[in-house]
Simulated assay, not measured.
Amino acid sequence: MGYSITIYKKMGYVSYGTEDADKITIINSLIDVKINRARDTQVTEATVIMEYEKLPLAAFQGGNSGIIDNYAHIEIYFDNVIQLSGVIKKYEYNEENKTITLNCHDMFYRLLNATDEDINYGVTTAVNVIADLVNRAGLNFYQEGGTNYSISSLKITEGTVYGDVIQSFLETMHAIIRCNKAGTIVLEDQYPPYIESGGDANHFDWVYKDSTNNSSDNAGRDATLMKNILKITCSVKIKNEDYIAFDKFEDPSMTSYLNGERWYEIIDNSLANTQEKRKAVAGWKYLEYWRKSTPLTVLPTLGNKNIDLGQVVKLLRDNTNPGYYLVVGIDTEVTGDGYTDTLQLEGMRDKTTIYEIPKLIASGVMKEAS
């Protein structure tokens, strides 16, 4: 496999130098590349170790003369297939070994920033707000999924984190958001379609087999994070006074799985201002609990430059029926010894059933504490 890294000279918040003199490409001369991407941590991190002699480094004490520097744009490729588009966030020299270590983030990191002004929206849609916030962070946006809906108005106060607002939308839209390998922010369905016990009638992207791709795997069931009773709350105004509207839901199938125990959680979502949206939040959370209850780690596998988060693996394991798993984490490492992936997988669930499963057990409106 061939691999390369291209680093571009800094030239402003949403641009970088593309002339030959403003970039450098390192080909097949790296010591080590590690890329850690996971659905639940949002920001993909990469660590690159390479020899630094004769490279155009920025002055250690600061300055703009070099190319390799913090916030310089970086792209990592395996066989010309992009694996990460982001920025260098930190670098360190090893004078003895003559190497430099680059710690990099993909472009999602910008959505962890806070607004520096109030933002006001009139009549618009949830997707339009998300797209605008992503654009304000200097990023490209693409919608692949999610249930859109109209909103009459919205005010985002100064100091609010972009990602926090977007997360509130996602829970009401049966959606997730992530940065793809090329650096574009993508709005997707929370979960792919899946038919319980449907076998190969379901879509799958890759087949992995114990004796061929993998050296080992570890599977189990984990109920420690499950909450079967959810109270979804939202601040609302009634006759210009502040109230909290709430709906309390139960997942009866989870209650049965938890042996009748009732585990309770309050979830506030500032956008869940109708019962329909509060049920959507409950369904979103229940699906997250169920998917996280069946983790499986395959380590290590032969490296696959085309595998990505959200894809589905058909796993053939000894002494058991084929399983279908969602890819939720990929730890990639390229060294002189080869190219491997460690995959974090989770058992598949039927999202349609879970979205409809929240059973309303209480509703109300209470005066918000002053």
Rank of each mutant, 00 (worst) to 15 (best):
20 D>Y: 01
95 E>I: 09
282 A>Y: 09
312 V>E: 05
19 E>L: 10
53 E>P: 00
214 N>H: 04
3 Y>T: 05
305 K>N: 09
324 Y>R: 07
96 E>C: 02
331 D>R: 09
106 D>I: 01
161 V>W: 01
28 N>A: 09
332 T>D: 04
362 A>D: 15
85 S>M: 07
162 Y>W: 01
165 V>E: 03
114 A>T: 14
83 Q>K: 11
252 P>Y: 04
149 Y>D: 02
19 E>K: 12
322 P>Q: 06
198 G>L: 12
4 S>N: 04
296 L>C: 15
152 S>P: 00
248 K>F: 00
361 I>A: 06
7 I>S: 06
301 T>W: 00
188 E>P: 04
289 Y>P: 01
63 G>K: 11
204 F>L: 04
244 I>Y: 10
309 L>G: 05
34 K>I: 08
119 I>W: 01
216 S>Q: 12
337 D>R: 07
157 T>F: 01
12 G>M: 05
234 C>N: 14
16 Y>S: 12
108 F>E: 02
91 Y>H: 15
74 I>D: 02
264 Y>D: 07
289 Y>Q: 02
186 V>W: 10
284 W>V: 00
148 N>Y: 10
333 E>A: 14
314 K>M: 11
56 P>Y: 08
293 S>I: 03
285 K>E: 14
288 E>K: 10
148 N>S: 05
188 E>T: 13
221 R>N: 11
51 E>V: 03
184 T>Y: 01
341 D>K: 08
115 T>W: 02
4 S>W: 03
161 V>M: 12
351 K>P: 15
288 E>L: 11
276 E>I: 13
119 I>A: 01
162 Y>H: 03
288 E>M: 08
325 Y>R: 01
215 S>F: 13
366 M>Q: 15
165 V>G: 00
246 F>A: 06
173 M>P: 13
343 L>R: 09
143 Q>G: 02
116 D>Q: 13
219 A>C: 02
166 I>P: 06
296 L>P: 00
28 N>E: 14
228 N>C: 10
46 A>T: 09
145 G>P: 11
52 Y>H: 11
230 L>M: 05
113 N>I: 01
128 N>D: 14
143 Q>F: 05
130 I>F: 08
182 A>G: 08
52 Y>V: 08
24 I>H: 02
284 W>R: 00
230 L>K: 06
35 I>M: 05
22 D>T: 06
366 M>V: 14
66 G>D: 12
370 S>Q: 13
289 Y>F: 11
356 E>Y: 05
227 K>H: 12
141 F>S: 06
340 T>G: 00
174 H>I: 04
286 Y>V: 04
6 T>E: 03
103 N>V: 12
204 F>H: 06
156 I>N: 01
311 Q>N: 06
27 I>Q: 08
277 K>Q: 08
251 D>N: 15
252 P>H: 04
124 T>G: 02
344 Q>H: 14
24 I>Y: 01
